[in-house]
């Protein structure tokens, strides 16, 4: 019941780590002063991710050695936390807020539109590797709901159209919906003479 995963003296030392000596040296340096059972593992992850933008695979055996546990435990721990990643993020990563305030204000529509515009599913990278969509949790900036974040910038409240135009600009496509006629802001309600029945299916 009080099993302490990190205190298993029967574990054989882990295999020497693979990877460029430079990388390994840097990682070792980053975790130099940390030790097991001092609430340091999270700190180690953060330092490494801060340095490289992700936790390189090569760090796993080093961490296992440092924290006197197995690579599997380290791997499982990284996998458990959604803010840790083991691959670099796409060059342009858009964070989409999944929270309730955004949801109630139409964030799912925005999600669909972004997925279509970037040709990229949520938590994936587009085929050309340029764009990534990342699902993030609400951080209490709900006055901007529905919002997306891009390189630390918060963009909201967004309409679906705005999100599409914004995403298109990122992709280099500057197609925009024609602006509404200034003289007739509510152009829709006007022009009955233009109205003609449309064939329905």
């Amino acid at each position: 019941m009080f099993s302490q995963a990190s205190h298993n003296s029967r574990l054989t030392p882990v295999e020497p780590a693979a990877g460029s000596t430079e990388l390994l040296a840097r990682i070792s340096e980053l975790i130099e002063d940390l030790s097991p059972d001092r609430v340091d593992l999270l700190k180690a992850f953060h330092r490494i991710q801060h340095e490289f933008g992700y936790v390189p695979r090569e760090a796993v055996p080093l961490l296992a050695g440092k924290f006197r546990t197995t690579p599997a435990i380290i791997f499982g721990t990284i996998d458990f936390y959604s803010e840790l990643r083991m691959a670099p993020a796409a060059e342009t990563t858009v964070d989409w807020c999944s929270g309730p305030a955004c949801l109630l204000k139409g964030s799912l529509n925005i999600r669909r539109a972004l997925e279509a515009t970037f040709e990229c599913e949520m938590n994936r990278t587009s085929a050309d590797g340029r764009f990534g969509l990342r699902l993030v949790q609400c951080d209490g900036t709900c006055h901007l709901a529905p919002l997306v974040r891009h390189h630390g910038r918060y963009i909201g409240p967004l309409t679906v159209s705005e999100s599409i135009e914004w995403a298109r600009r990122l992709t280099g496509d500057d197609r925009r919906a024609p602006p509404e006629d200034g003289a007739r802001p509510a152009a829709d309600e006007a022009s009955p003479e233009l109205a003609e029945p449309v064939e329905a299916e």
Binding site: D37, V39, S82, E83
Partner: peptide, 30 residues
């Protein structure tokens, strides 16, 4: 000391938080 989490809702459960502090997956305990 201030400890920074890494993105997990169940680490808000008190025993999940304990696991997280113990260098492990933040799984709530029994």
């Amino acid at each position: 000391e201030v400890v920074r989490g890494a993105g997990s809702y169940v680490c808000g459960d008190e025993t999940g938080l304990l696991s997280s502090l113990e260098d492990r997956r933040g799984m709530p305990k029994i």
